[in-house]
Amino acid sequence: MEKIPILRMGDFLLVTIQVDMHDRLAMALQDDLTQKISETSARGVLIDISSLEIVDSFIGRMLGNIAAMSRVLDAQTVVVGMRPAVAITLVELGMSLPGVRTALNVDAGMELLRESLNGHEGIRHGSNF
């Protein structure tokens, strides 16, 4: 079965969505990521959507779910690389992705994750990032 790869880099998980996902693939990614966060005790998830030509309500909801589930598992999610045309369309559609942190690109997203991790330091035992 088709799968979106999830890469691990230190305390973070990285996902680059490079295909036009059908709904089941998006659901599978949501499940895989949640599983992976728990398995690896990841503290952050970075999702790069710069290849996505559209984000409709289904994908938008998936991004919101991932952000919410990762938060419950004590990890932060940042969505990066949204195309301007996609941002315009999403807002007009009525989805402003509440609860989803975004950054313009991967660098800014990593920065955001590191900052939030540093702010968190000491709360979780053994995390010495």
Binding site: D23, E53, I54, V55, D56, S57, F58, R83, P84, A85, V86, I88, T89, L90, E92, L93
Partner: peptide, 17 residues
Amino acid sequence: SLVDQTKVVTAASELAR
């Protein structure tokens, strides 16, 4: 335009679903 393409494709995706 790219923005209008994105809008109509997104609308199509919603309605197809």
